[in-house]
């Protein structure tokens, strides 16, 4: 299995989109090269803007562009794209429901050795609470490409979160994705593992281990946190009863919380959340940071078995 970061999927797809549609713009904030917009900058300079290290005006400029029929992708790191400019996103993109996309690399703990300032564990929760916003984290390179394309084609504000670090490819290039529709990667009725982003690979590995032990679990790639695929979650609760969620995000206000809300509304099912334990990270290897929070194949297996 080859390894590639999902920020590369964004970088490759945005160039393709920009060549097809002259209204696709990139608004960089001086970390374009790191966020993989270098090729776009070179190929499509008339559709590229760099506002400097100034995320707040990046969001505002993007909103202004959007009022003129342009589809701007504001590109930065997740920590800055979700927090430095969150009020501009709320006021100038979400409130007027403008066609602004926020595309962020360095999601979760993937900026590992950069330390806690650059790791971002709060973003999807923060953005999910704003009306009109769509929140997406693809699980691999090919799904990143497909979901970037889908985001460009969906009217309204969308937040996309990518990995800095390389992760395994899960999907082939022809796989189809729809915003708000989970991808079922395996079926089973003993339990379900609902994951997104860079943890989907761990969910698949855990399901393989469990299957070898005779436990059949369903695995869902919940790439869209908002709007959540309530139908798929409901079906998992109805069919499996036991749900384990996995995410490279704070367990507060992330995927696990969203899934638990569905179970609470139904008054059915049992949900266990695996994710960042409401604590800041540190400079350390990516896999170590995940392990410090129990985000491992082994812990997913143990957690599922404890529920059976």
């Amino acid at each position: 299995m080859s390894l590639i970061a999902t920020r590369d999927g964004f970088g490759d797809e945005i160039v393709a989109l920009g060549k097809e549609n002259k209204n696709i713009f990139v608004v960089d904030a001086d970390i374009g090269k790191s966020c993989k917009t270098g090729a776009f900058m070179k190929a499509l300079p008339e559709q590229h803007i760099n506002v400097g290290i100034a995320e707040q005006s990046a969001a505002g400029v993007a909103a202004g562009l959007a009022t003129c029929g342009i589809i701007p992708f504001v590109v930065t790191y997740a920590a800055f794209g979700s927090m430095r400019m969150v009020e501009m996103i709320r006021q100038e993109a979400c409130y007027p429901n403008l066609n602004v996309k926020i595309a962020c690399s360095h999601g979760g703990v993937t900026p590992a050795n950069d330390g806690a300032s650059h790791q971002c564990i709060e973003d999807m929760g923060i953005l999910s609470t704003i009306p009109n916003m769509t929140v997406i984290m693809p699980a691999d390179y090919n799904s990143a490409r497909k979901l970037v394309r889908a985001a460009a084609g969906k009217y309204g504000p969308v937040y996309l979160r990518f990995t800095r670090d390389a992760i395994p490819e899960i999907y082939g290039p022809d796989e189809q994705f729809e915003i708000g529709k989970a991808k079922q990667l395996r079926d089973g009725s003993d339990a379900a593992i609902i994951a997104n982003g860079d943890t989907v690979r761990l969910a698949i590995e855990a399901a393989e281990v469990l299957e070898a032990e005779g436990v059949k679990v369903r695995v869902l790639d919940m790439h869209t946190v908002k709007p959540l695929d309530v139908e798929a979650v409901t079906a998992a609760i109805e069919d499996c009863g036991k749900i384990v969620t996995v995410e490279d995000h704070n367990i507060i206000n992330g995927l696990g919380a969203a899934v638990a809300c569905v179970a609470a509304d139904l008054g059915k099912g049992q949900v266990k959340r695996i994710g960042i334990q409401d604590q800041f990270g540190q400079s350390a290897p990516y896999e170590r940071l995940l392990a410090m929070n129990g985000i491992t194949t082994e812990n997913i297996v143990v957690t599922v078995k404890a529920m059976l």
Binding site: I49, V61, A63, L65
Partner: peptide, 9 residues
């Protein structure tokens, strides 16, 4: 900033 974006457009 929104006005700047409109002008740039």
């Amino acid at each position: 900033a929104c006005g700047a974006g409109m002008a740039l457009a």
